[in-house]
Simulated assay, not measured.
Amino acid sequence: MSKLKTIVSNVKKKSKYLYLTAVAAGMAAITNISFVYAADNKYATNASNWAMSGVQSLVTVGAVIIVGKSLISRKFVQMLVSILIAAIVLAIVYNPSLMRGIGEYLTNIVIG
């Protein structure tokens, strides 16, 4: 009787995985509809702009806090290095195409 119970529980576990696989395959099939890719997606653009403005604000505040902390503790070399690093990070955050240009330049150097 205990063998039968273990067999039934194993079948239930396997059927659960089969069910989840079927659901995942169905969801993948639903997302591969061709007209979804051609739709104008303003929601994603708006969400991306909103996220970028939040990241820009956080990076700016973080840079100010780090530089201010260095200035208050009179670590001037650390402050100058922090300003330099913050300037590079802020330039990349406020102008993301700069990162693409750097990547293309490095790709041209490596691949030639």
Rank of each mutant, 00 (worst) to 15 (best):
F76K: 07
M52V: 11
F35N: 10
L71P: 03
A38F: 09
W50C: 07
V67Q: 03
A51R: 10
G68H: 09
L58Q: 11
I65V: 15
Q78C: 01
Y37R: 13
L71C: 04
S53H: 06
V36H: 06
Y43M: 10
S73P: 00
L80S: 08
V55G: 02
L71Q: 05
I72V: 07
M27Q: 05
D40V: 15
V81D: 01
Q78T: 12
K69N: 12
I88Q: 00
V77N: 05
N46M: 11
R74I: 11
K75Y: 02
L90C: 03
Y37L: 12
V77D: 10
L71F: 11
V67R: 03
A86H: 05
T60I: 04
N46P: 00
A87W: 02
N32R: 14
A63Q: 04
A86G: 05
L80G: 04
V67K: 02
N46A: 12
G54R: 07
Q56C: 04
D40I: 14
Y43N: 10
T45V: 13
W50T: 14
S57N: 12
I66C: 01
L80R: 04
T45E: 13
V36Q: 08
V59Q: 07
L58N: 09
M27I: 15
I33P: 02
T31E: 04
A38R: 13
S48V: 08
S82T: 08
W50A: 15
K69W: 08
N41W: 03
I65K: 06
V89L: 11
K75T: 02
W50E: 12
I30H: 02
A86R: 05
W50Q: 11
K42V: 11
A44D: 05
A39W: 10
A63S: 15
V61C: 04
A63Y: 00
A39R: 10
V89I: 15
A28K: 08
V36R: 07
A86D: 07
Q56W: 00
D40N: 15
Q78S: 12
W50L: 14
L84Q: 01
I88A: 11
G62H: 06
A87E: 01
I33D: 10
N41S: 08
I66Y: 01
A38I: 09
V81P: 00
V67C: 11
I85M: 13
M52A: 13
G62L: 07
T45R: 09
I83R: 01
V55P: 01
S53P: 00
V61F: 08
A86P: 06
V36T: 10
V64C: 07
A87V: 05
G62R: 07
R74G: 02
S34P: 10
A28M: 14
G62W: 06
L90I: 14
V55I: 15
L84T: 14
K75P: 00
G68A: 12
L84C: 10
I85N: 03
K69R: 12
A28W: 08
I65E: 06
M52I: 14
I83K: 03
G54P: 05
I33K: 09
S73A: 06
K42D: 13
G62C: 07
A28H: 02
S82E: 01
T31R: 03
Q56G: 09
